[in-house]
Amino acid sequence: MNDMTRVERAVDSKDIKINAKKVQVYYGATHAIKDVDVEIEDKTVTAFIGPSGCGKSTFLRCLNRMNDTIDICRVEGDILLDGEDIYDKRVDPVQLRAKVGMVFQKPNPFPKSIYDNVAYGPRIHGLARNKSELDEIVEKSLRRGAIWDEVKDRLDAPGTGLSGGQQQRLCIARAVATEPEVLLMDEPCSALDPIATAQVEELIDELRSRYSVVIVTHSMQQAARVSQKTAFFHLGNLVEFGETGQIFTNPVDPRTESYITGRIG
């Protein structure tokens, strides 16, 4: 398997953004992630696929240390962001999360106005010196979230009043507002209808020009549509990692083939 990924890397010459080596995650006594090695490239969409409970979401949450908020969770191994270990004692997880933004499965706008939702991150991190700068950041983020035209006339309306798809794009705009380098998306379309899903997928493709995007998805079609690289997780192991096209057309591991053809999962 390692030989395979090395071959893939030779094909692709982009920078490595996140390099995970021998990552283990334990929930209490349960060994949830076993020996995962992944290299996530910059300006690329990487999809994590696999059956429920295979650890793909858990692994995603390791990348911005969201697992720190769960008491019983323990992470071992190295995860390097731009060559620096994010689990090093000197790294402030709060600062890290501003650099590695996250979008969740269910749209979770705060019960605040649309403007305040997007301005939340910049305000906390002091990214704007004055109101007009903040206005600029909010507009820019909403444009990047491809929702500006729909909400520009009602920035004071509550974010919870938008439709599901709009809420999710608002959450993406909110994550983009802190100028992250990596965007983690945990099944961002699972609570959306097909039209909203298509809009969000289109947005993910646009985000690729600026950020490194990691997306967890249950839908193999979605992984095939939006990602360039795909990682298949099964029972806590990373079974196969490579070019999306190659994974879906010519998988190396028999388990991958079984999954994408619908025999396991």
Binding site: F104, Y120, G121, I124
Partner: peptide
């Protein structure tokens, strides 16, 4: 208050007291 609210705030790099003050308490 749904855990998703807190996760959203932590995911943006807010500390615990910032999250409580600005997201949990208003909610």
């Amino acid at each position: 208050v749904p855990q998703a609210m807190r996760d959203g705030s932590y995911g943006l790099g807010a500390t615990q007291s910032e999250t409580i003050r600005q997201v949990v308490l208003p909610a």
